[in-house]
Computed example of a mutant assay.
Amino acid sequence: MVSWAVTGATRGIGLGFVQNLSADSQNQVFAIIRSLATAGPLKELATERKNIHIVVTELSDPEKLKLAAAEVSKATGGSLDVLILNAGSAGPETSALPPSAFHGKEEALEKEIGENINNNIISNIYVINSFLDLIRNGTEKKIAFVSSQSGDLEFTRITGFSFVMGYSIAKAGMNIVMTKFGAELAHEGIKTISLSPGWVNTDAAKAVTGDPAVRKIMLDLFHKLDPDVSGPIEVDESVSSQLKLIKELTAENSGKFLTHHGDTSTWF
């Protein structure tokens, strides 16, 4: 039996991971979430599939994460095979602003960057460190981070995608953190990877690109990189592609940032 832990598992890509993985009864799946109040679909799925374990914790609190890791450890006998870091957020309402728009808005700039650093980098480091001993005892010894194409320099340069600055900075920063962990832990057989999920048809994405005018702006930018992109892919397609790469992850690929296609340029 392979044990998997997925953060941010109440909806979207995180819930997609849980749905996909729990379909195999040989997988033991830990859905790590902040609150049961918004976890309706997850709770329904966990009622149907007994290999799903819901763990409620606070990702920004090392003490609560310690308790969450202990809960997982009790269920697995002290190990965890794969940790998937999916939880995160695009930050405050200023995310639609390009860098120059923050001139004279220093407090807003600090909030834009700070909230994203806390939610998308520091919390993830807390999670990794809290579960690291379990990963050390696992068989697969893998840690995967769900990143974003917006954290890639070439994607940004070619498309002209100047928005979600704090989110992009945090995703890019977490990519290097994953590489650092991979470099540090390679001698223990632990492997890391950052993956862009693609442009995915989640509720969060719909909230941004559901507006026809915004969708046209996005497509005009994305067409600079890929003239054939017509819209987002479904969650299951993204999750299936990412899981294939996670399962195939070797020491040779550890620490890389790849698209869901397994390369460094096919973002859609």
Rank of each mutant, 00 (worst) to 15 (best):
D220E: 15
K247Q: 14
D81G: 09
A69S: 10
L36F: 01
G182A: 07
I84F: 00
S254D: 09
S194I: 05
L80W: 12
I125E: 10
S265L: 10
R34D: 01
K206G: 08
R136M: 05
F163L: 13
G255F: 12
G189I: 08
N119D: 10
V18G: 05
T7G: 00
E71C: 02
E154R: 14
K244E: 13
D228F: 03
L67V: 13
E188S: 07
F102H: 09
S73Y: 05
Y167N: 00
Q149D: 15
D263E: 11
F145Q: 00
E58S: 11
I176L: 15
Q26Y: 07
L45K: 04
P62M: 07
V55C: 01
M165C: 15
K105W: 09
L97D: 15
V82H: 06
E252T: 14
E237D: 14
V72S: 02
K171T: 04
L134N: 02
S89R: 02
L97V: 11
N86Q: 06
F145N: 05
G12R: 00
E140M: 10
K216L: 12
K206E: 06
N253T: 07
E71F: 06
G77E: 12
N129K: 08
A37L: 07
W4P: 03
I217D: 11
V200S: 01
A69G: 12
L134R: 02
I143W: 03
N129S: 07
S196R: 05
N137A: 15
N27E: 10
P62H: 05
F268Q: 10
L45N: 05
A144V: 12
F102D: 04
V239H: 09
G262P: 03
D203K: 10
F161L: 14
W267I: 00
V56S: 01
I246Q: 04
A96P: 04
E248L: 06
D152C: 13
G231K: 06
R11T: 01
S79E: 10
S147T: 05
N86L: 06
T209W: 14
R215S: 14
G210Q: 05
E154K: 10
H53V: 04
I176D: 09
I128G: 01
N175L: 05
A183R: 13
G12H: 02
G77C: 09
G138Y: 14
N51F: 13
I233V: 13
P212H: 08
D81F: 11
D228S: 14
K191G: 00
A87I: 02
N253W: 07
K191N: 00
I121M: 13
A204L: 11
K191M: 07
